[in-house]
Each structure stands twice: as C-alpha cells, then as structure tokens.
Design a protein around this nucleic acid. Structure first.
Length: 700
DNA sequence: GAGCACTGC
C-alpha cells in the first residue's frame, strides 16, 4: 500500500524526480525515493512514519484503491463511515494523492463546525508532514489559514457557501467533499442544491458526500444514483438497556439511574444527556446530594456540567480525571451535558451513557413568524449517536429512559433537517444572489408558507421587487453575513447619519447575549447592567455597553466586574471589523451625528426601525401589547431597560417561554412608522385593530 | 418579573 501511494505521488509530481536541485538530495532520492516528501522536497520526518503506521490501521485505509477507482469513473460518490473510520482525515488525502489537485485546483472538505475544520486541518498537515497554512489549510470566519501552495483546505460549510456567492461555479476546486452530511445543517443542505446544478455545468468537478449514517442512501438518489461506499466504524460494542415502563419524570429517573450506576456498576465515567442549563445545574446538585447521603457505602464522585454558554475554563473540566476516593470504593466522573457532547465535544473514558431521550430543538412557526426552542423527543439517529459515546475507549452501556416499544414506534428515524425548522429570510436572499430562482433545497423542500414568509419579508425590506428579482439594495444586503433586517438597517443607516453606531448595534445583536446573570448573583448582575441602561431602549443599552467595553480596552477584569460576557463582546468586535470592511467595499459611508445633538439617539432609533418595522408592538388600552398586524399578545421581557410601557415599541426578538415575550425593545413613535415604512403601514391594507385606529388619527 | 439546544457567514 505504501508503494502504491509513493508511485501515485511521483506520477503527479514528476518534477521532483527529474529536476532535483541539489546533488545530496538527488543522491538521497535515488537511494530511497519513497522517503522524500513530494510537497516539501524534503525527506520525511520520523514523526511522519509514526503517524503513517497509525493511519494504516484506520478502517478506511483498506479502501483507498476502491475509492480512487470509483471516483475516477463517477462524478459523485457517497461514502458512509461511522465514528472512528478515519474518513475525515484520510479521504481528502486520497484525493490529493490521486492527483486531483494539480493545475492550481484545490480539494475542499467542509465541516459543520469551526473547531473541527481547524483541528482536522492541523492533524492532516501533520500526517502529510507539511506546515499548516501551506499545502494544507483551513478557512473559517475571521480566520483564513491558506496560501498560494494550498492543495487541500478544510472549510466550514457556511464559508464555502459564502465563496459560492462570488464564484458560483466554485471554479477553484476540482473536488468538493461535503463531510458530516447526515447532520443536515442549513448550509450543507443549500450546498447540496447548489452542487447539483454546478455538476451539470462543470463536468470536471467531483463531489464526495460523506455521512455517518445510511440515510446517505437518500443522498444517492438526489445525486443521480451516485455509487455508495461503506467503511466500517471503529467503536467498542455498547449494550443498550431500555426501561420496562415509561418514566413519568425523566429528570428524577435520570438522577436515580446515575446514582444506581455509581453504586452498582464497575468503574467508568458516566455521561448524561439533558436539555439545558437550568436542568443540568439542578441535576448536578441533586446527584451530588444523593451520593453524599450514601456516605462511605460508595466512592466519591466529580459531577461536571457541560453546556455551550459555560465559560471555556469550566468547559475544560469535563476532561479532568476524577480524583481517587477517600475510601476504597471507585471514584467516578459524571458529566451532565446538553447535545454539545453528542456532536461537538468528545469525552474519552465514558463507559456509561444515560439518555432520557429529549433535547431542545429549534422550531419555526411561519404563521406568526416565530422561531423558538422546544423540548422535544430526539430521533433514533440521535439516540444511536448518544449511545456511541459510551463505546469510544472500551465496551460500554447505554441506559435509555424510555421503552423499547417507544423507541421503535414513537421516535422519528432522523431529526428534521434544519431547513424545515428555520426562518429562511437570509437563505432566500443568498440564493437570489446566487442567481437561483427555482430555489433548490435538496431533498427536503421547506413548507410553502415558510418560503412565502421569507419572500414577503424580503419584499417589504425592498430587497426583492414584486417579481422576486433582487434589487440594488438587496444585492448589497446579501453581501453581509447578517439577518436581512440587520443588513437593511445597516444599509439605511447613513440616511439617518448614524452608520457608525448602527455598525456597533448590529454587531452586538449578532452575538450571544453579552449580559451575564448567574443564578446566585442576580441582584449584582442587574445592578451592573443598570449602568449601561438607556431610557429609550435596549438597543441603545447594547450600544452603551459596547462603547464602555471599548473604552476599557476590552479588559477581562472589567468585563467580569461588570457582569459582561467577554467572549460575546470580543466576538461582536470581530464582527464589527468584518462589517466595516464590507461597508467600505460597498461605499456605504461610516458617519455619526454630533453626540451632544438631541437627534443623536433619535436618529439611531429611526435607523433601527428601518430594518425592524415589521416587528412592532402597540400598547392597547387594556394595558397589554399586541404585535402589529399579527395581533399576538406579548409582554415586554423582564430584562428590558424600558421603565414604563411606551405606546409603540420595536422588538428584536419574539421568545416563547412561559409567556410570549418580546426581547430587546426600543421605544418608537407612531408617526415614524408612517414616515419610514409607509408601504408596510399602508392603512388600506391593514387588519382592523386599535393600532390601525391610532395610525389613522395620526394620518389625518 | 425571566432563561439561553447547537452551529455558521
């Protein structure tokens, strides 16, 4: 097999053997051509051979020849390989070794997550004995680590989609590999639709779809019966246990099961899947309490919560090893995690998995235009993935807290792809930019109502004309990596003389909530936040917080003291830098009003309204807010800075939790609606309601 | 008067 590789490399890099520049090197090559790295022209390092030995043990290694032969004959190929098959690191190298990356064309392999793109690229650079950023690189938002010599690039799926907007035929690439296709991210699904078209126009392009599940067979039909290859995974067996009867309270059952495993099962760490922060913190506390009540009958435990909003140092704790017990019993680590441990984070040493069968999932209701998070049953594919987490280092056990009948009968085979659960405003805009009219959505087309909502939004924002064609402002809007409302607000902001401030607000709105509010320090956190409050609304509060952050030089201690999330603020700052670059490319002026002018804040609020005029609520005489046109009963979110209830508010977000809340609100005036969004507030096309009567009075 | 699954440009 090694010889095969060396031969194919030499074939594709004939220059190295025929044109040695140095006599010592020539002698070396003549003696042992296999030892020379065709990319660096240098002998392979010792490490290379160490790694090579391990690569040869990967299940996928055996199928290199088959893979290359099939790829030669077919324009597309589907490859199914479970965890541990080595497909992500090896297949792109097969492509390079087979000579597809000559004449300046690249092989790109997409990943749904930034961390994966980065770490896999580093690993592959090591395997190929080259430096990262040279022959092998990666490309993720805010970070382009590639160079003129790059042959192989790992990219986030979203990044490749962005690239398609400037190069719709993706001409830079000879081979495009879509990895983790089973995850069905929004970007991956759109890439599917796009690639299907590109394949027809570029007969020289090869597309490889890699997936962990056999759902891939469905991709096969989508890509004109592409051949399918299967690679075995490498996991230890995991024994599955179901409950006899359905559990009434899954949280209670989870805690009971964890304690039982700890008391009765052989050594090995436990991974528990729950749905969110509050539930996880609660379970951590209860498990600790129960185990400590058992005293010396059991060993010590280390209970570690894991969820995305946890500060990075605390996330790192899941990799700590449980300290040994004070008594002779086994000590154990118990990790209680959201779905983050299902896909993004792998914890070695887990032997037991507890799967209550739920996760928070995004759902979109196009009727009221609301995206929300709902605790819902997971799919069988997801249950399978969770169980697999128990078999990474040795044989394991998975305890499913539902019945086998329920598993077979009630759970769906796959999680609904994201494209069916999302607001598609931004997606439709991107596709219009790509010149695609009969929107290709892969094999799961979204609900017609979802599409209608997206087209309607873009039309009201003037991004699309009545025929659905991209307008001039729509073209510029599509260039920003933002929701259409935010792009519109940015494009319109120079007219209100405040693009500088809107850049900051838009950036703050596109990162996770910068205000931290720990459960045990709510009062202190609220006090800290009140320093930034602006009486006219939460958008201006965000602006104040951003300005304060900058004035304090982005200091960690300062953020901590003021209950601000440093990660969020840094990321907002990165977004802002990126937006400033894009804004200047499209000749949008960066301007500010005089800070002391009475119009300073007024202008900003009007600019925000120019993107968010469809998200306005009116205070009824009854004392309740109704959203305009949709007439949904909503309440100001308790986190708002608004001190009394203004008659008109614009909101950034509609959240459905214990109640319908509108979050991040700013006071506006009724007549602004008529001035700034007359087409939307056209009273001849307006449902009968109190808001309409108020607006009618303003008109006359 | 209260949460924020997870990604991504």
């Amino acid at each position: 097999m090694e010889a095969h590789i060396a031969v194919s490399r030499n074939q594709h890099f004939p220059v190295q053997l025929s044109d040695p520049t140095d006599s010592v090197e020539r002698a070396h090559r003549a003696g042992d051509a296999l030892q020379v790295n065709p990319f660096t022209h240098r002998p392979y390092s010792e490490k290379y051979f160490d790694i090579l030995k391990k690569r040869k043990d990967l299940p996928v290694w055996q199928q290199q020849k088959d893979f290359v032969n099939i790829l030669k004959k077919s324009q597309t190929l589907i490859l199914v390989g479970e965890t541990g098959s080595g497909k992500t690191t090896q297949v792109p190298q097969f492509v390079v070794d087979a000579g597809y990356t000559v004449n300046g064309k690249l092989c790109v392999c997409t990943q749904p997550r930034r961390v994966a793109a980065m770490s896999v690229a580093r690993r592959v650079a090591e395997e190929m004995d080259v430096s990262i950023g040279h022959e092998v690189g990666y490309s993720i938002r805010f970070e382009e680590v590639t160079g003129p010599k790059t042959l192989l690039k790992y990219s986030t799926d979203g990044m490749l989609l962005r690239e398609a907007m400037t190069d719709p035929l993706l001409r830079r690439y000879s081979v495009i590999i879509i990895d983790e296709a089973h995850e069905r991210t929004l970007a991956t699904d759109i890439l599917f639709g796009l690639l299907k078209e590109v394949l027809l126009k570029r007969r020289d392009l090869k597309v490889v779809v890699m997936s962990a599940t056999l759902e891939a067979q469905k991709f096969q039909g989508y890509f004109l019966d592409a051949p399918l290859m299967q690679v075995p995974g490498r996991l230890h067996p995991v024994e599955i246990f179901y409950t006899e009867n359905p559990e009434r309270d899954y949280l209670e059952a989870t805690i009971r099961t964890a304690v039982q495993i700890h008391a009765c099962e052989p050594p090995g760490d436990i991974l528990v899947f729950l749905t969110g922060e509050e539930e996880i913190e609660d379970a951590c506390m209860k498990i600790k309490r129960e185990v400590s009540n058992m005293g010396d009958r059991v060993g010590d435990i280390m209970v570690v919560p894991l969820y995305a909003s946890l500060p990075p140092q605390q996330q790192q704790r899941v990799f700590d090893v449980a300290p040994s017990s004070r008594n002779t019993r086994t000590s154990r680590k118990i990790v209680i995690s959201t779905n983050i441990a299902e896909t993004s984070l792998t914890i070695d040493g887990v032997v037991y998995v507890i799967d209550p069968g739920f996760a928070k999932q995004k759902v979109y209701n196009p009727r009221i235009r609301v995206e929300s998070l709902l605790v819902s049953p997971i799919s069988r594919a997801s249950a399978h993935q969770r169980a697999g987490r128990a078999g990474r280092t040795c044989p394991g056990k998975c305890f499913r807290l539902y019945t086998e009948t329920s598993f077979k009968r009630d759970l769906q085979e796959q999680t609904y792809p994201e494209i069916l659960r999302s607001n598609l405003g931004s997606v439709v805009l991107q596709l219009k930019k790509l010149g695609i009219d009969d929107l290709p959505y892969g094999k799961d087309p979204p609900a017609p109502e979802t599409l209608m909502r997206a087209l309607e939004l873009l039309n009201y924002l003037d991004a699309l004309d009545d025929e659905g064609n991209l307008s001039q402002v729509g073209f510029v809007m599509s260039e920003f990596p933002l929701d259409p409302q935010l792009s519109k607000m940015l494009c319109a902001s120079p007219q209100f003389n405040c693009s500088n401030e809107i850049l900051s607000i838009v950036s703050m709105l596109s990162v996770p909530n910068p205000f931290v509010r720990p459960r045990d320090q709510q009062f202190e956190a609220d006090e800290a936040r009140s320093q930034f409050c602006h009486i006219d609304g939460d958008h201006l509060t965000l602006l104040n917080a951003y300005h304060a952050f900058k004035q304090n030089g982005g200091d960690t201690g300062w953020c901590h003291k003021n209950y601000l999330n440093m990660r969020s603020l840094k990321s907002a700052d990165n977004v802002r830098t990126q937006l400033v670059r894009l804004v200047s490319r499209h000749n949008i002026a960066v301007v500010s009003s005089d800070f002391t002018s009475k119009d300073y804040y007024l202008n900003i609020r009007k600019a925000v309204l120019s993107g968010y005029f469809m998200q306005v609520a009116h205070l009824e005489r009854s004392g309740h807010y109704l959203t305009v046109k949709d007439n949904q009963l909503v309440s100001l979110h308790p986190s708002t800075c608004l001190q009394q209830k203004p008659e008109w508010v614009l909101y950034n977000e509609f959240v459905l939790t214990t109640k319908n809340y509108i979050r991040v609100c700013t006071e506006i005036k009724g007549n602004w609606l008529l001035d700034i969004a007359s087409h939307y507030y056209d009273l001849s096309n307006f449902p009968e309601c109190e808001a309409r009567r108020v607006l009618e009075r303003l008109c006359s």
